[in-house]
Each structure stands twice: as C-alpha cells, then as structure tokens.
Design a protein around this nucleic acid. Structure first.
Length: 278
DNA sequence: CGAAACTCCTGAGCGC
DNA sequence: TGCGCTCAGGAGTTTC
C-alpha cells in the first residue's frame, strides 16, 4: 500500500515527535523481514544517539543520526506509529525504537518491509540506482521523454520503474495515466513529448493531492497517529472496474499488466485520443 | 543489456 | 462454519 504519499505522510507524522530525541532502547521481535540489519549492529549504531532529522527518499524513510541513517521501508503492509511507552503489543509489531517517553513502533503483517542501516561511508544498494524524485525539478517532461525512448515496455510499467522515477506505485500509476489521458498499454518508446508532459504533470498533481489527503487507505494503511488516509475517496479509476468514468461515463476497464491490476477508461484513454496532439 | 516472470508473507474475500 | 482458492499497494532476483 505505501507509495510515495503514504511514506511522506508517515514521515511528516513522526518527525515532530522524534526530532532531537535520544534513542534509549531498541527491540526486534521478528527477524524475517525483507532485509534486517543484524540486531547487534542496530544496538551499536542506534542506542544513545540523537535524531538529527527525518527525511524521505523514494519510498524509504530515513532517520538521520550523527553516525548514519536508520532506514525503514514499509513494504506493502507496513506502518509506523508513535505510541506512549508501555503500549501493549499487537499482532505483527516487529520492531520498536524507544525514546525517553515514547515508542516508534513498526507493524507489518506481510513482512515485505525492511529495516536497514546506512553508513555514510558506504553505498547502500537499495538507494543507489534510484531515479529522480517526482516532485523535484529533475523530473521534467524532457527527462521522461528521453528515458521513455530507451524502453519498449508499456508506459504504466515505465512510470512504476523506480530507476525512471521513484514513488509511483500501482494505484497512482493508474490514476496518473487517467488524468494524463494516456492508455496504460502505450509502448514507452512511442510516447510523444506532449504525452510525456501530460504524464509528468499528472504524476505531480496526483501525488501532491494524495499527500494533502494523508495518503490512500484501501485496507490497512494508517497514518502515524492511527487515522486512515483520505485519498481513497478521490480515486477515479483504481478498483472501479465497471463503474462509470467520472469524465465520460464509459465503464472503467480493468486488465492485468505485469501481474498488476490496472484500471483505465477505454474512451478517455484510447490510443486514438492518446496519440492525438492536444 | 532489457523485459517479464518469480519470489518473499499474511490476511481478506469469495464460491462452494 | 469452514475449506480452498485468488488476490493484494513493493521490488530485488532469476530467467530468457
């Protein structure tokens, strides 16, 4: 579930509680995550350290300490909560980072998430090779156009490729292409510059709106204070198969693309419309 | 090299 | 009520 807006929401939610706080203790209850630093390393690097900042890169949460970064990835089902000390455990509470008066608690039913340590002197493979941030200046229509030219895959798979641009997951890929009026199956190397411009703008608009709404809660995403995200109410095509398109009332179609559910309006996003210059 | 399939895991929802 | 099946938002690895 967590795509860029959900990770951004989580960062914003935990930041005010953690800044300048000192880590007093850590607790790892489940070692079978996607990646987990050795507990000994965590103990050595974290305990007694003061949080300098809380940042986001792609879908990774970076908690900066004087000696490096604690990096948390929420995977598909992870969430981070700020809780009072002594809060009883719930199922799938895998990791605690304790401060003086509060706990940063990581819960992840599917265990696709990760807890990493980034030593500033070393490169972390997960963070190298990442593409530009979609909301920063490097993500331009020209950049997207040049990148698209090198790929034969379809546009939806392209914008979900973290080497091309980070943060766009399955939900926002469908939503962005609907807003851009581009068919998800359009081959990347056939996109026009005008289409790339529409896609770039749409991605930025959708992600910005989703951040303002606190992310999207479909099943289990929670903000750090436990509230759901409200962008689900704004979704136009995702999970709307058979429902009328909000723009033209044609039933929304769903297809499977690279093993992922994909939704689009066959009228608004037809190849004919997509290729036409607008 | 790129593209697509496969993989990790739990839980929800469905049909029977 | 319960069983078995399918599907789920990520992303590195494997295979072709």
């Amino acid at each position: 579930m967590p795509e860029l807006p959900e990770v951004e929401t989580t960062c914003n939610g935990i930041r005010p509680f953690l800044q300048k706080q000192t880590i007093s203790r850590i607790c790892v209850r489940q070692k079978q995550l996607r990646w987990l630093v050795p507990v000994k390393t965590l103990q050595e690097k974290l305990v007694g350290q003061q949080v300098v900042s809380v940042k986001r890169r792609a879908k990774y949460i970076l908690i900066e300490l004087p000696s490096g970064h604690l990096i948390i990835h929420l995977g598909m089902s992870g969430c981070l909560r700020i809780l009072p000390k002594g809060t009883p455990l719930q199922k799938h509470d895998h990791f605690d980072c304790e401060f003086n008066n509060l706990i940063l608690r990581y819960n992840d039913p599917r265990r696709f998430g990760a807890i990493l340590w980034h030593d500033p002197n070393q490169t972390l493979p997960q963070l190298s090779h990442l593409g530009p941030e979609p909301l920063e200046s490097a993500f331009t229509p020209t950049y997207l156009y040049q990148a698209a030219k090198r790929h034969r895959t379809c546009v939806k798979t392209l914008i979900m490729n973290q080497k091309i641009v980070v943060g766009v997951g399955n939900i926002y890929a469908s939503e962005s292409l609907f807003l851009a009026r581009v068919h998800p199956l359009t081959p990347a190397n056939q996109l026009s510059l005008v289409q790339c411009q529409r896609i770039q703008r749409a991605v930025q608009k959708i992600l910005t709106q989703a951040i303002q709404q606190g992310g999207t809660t479909l099943k289990d995403f929670k903000q750090s204070d436990g509230k759901p995200g409200y962008f689900a109410l704004k979704l136009k095509v995702y999970d709307k198969a058979g429902k009328p398109c909000s723009r033209c009332h044609t039933p929304i179609q769903s297809i499977r693309l690279a093993q992922r559910a994909t939704y689009f309006c066959p009228h608004c996003q037809s190849y004919r419309h997509s290729s036409a210059k607008r």
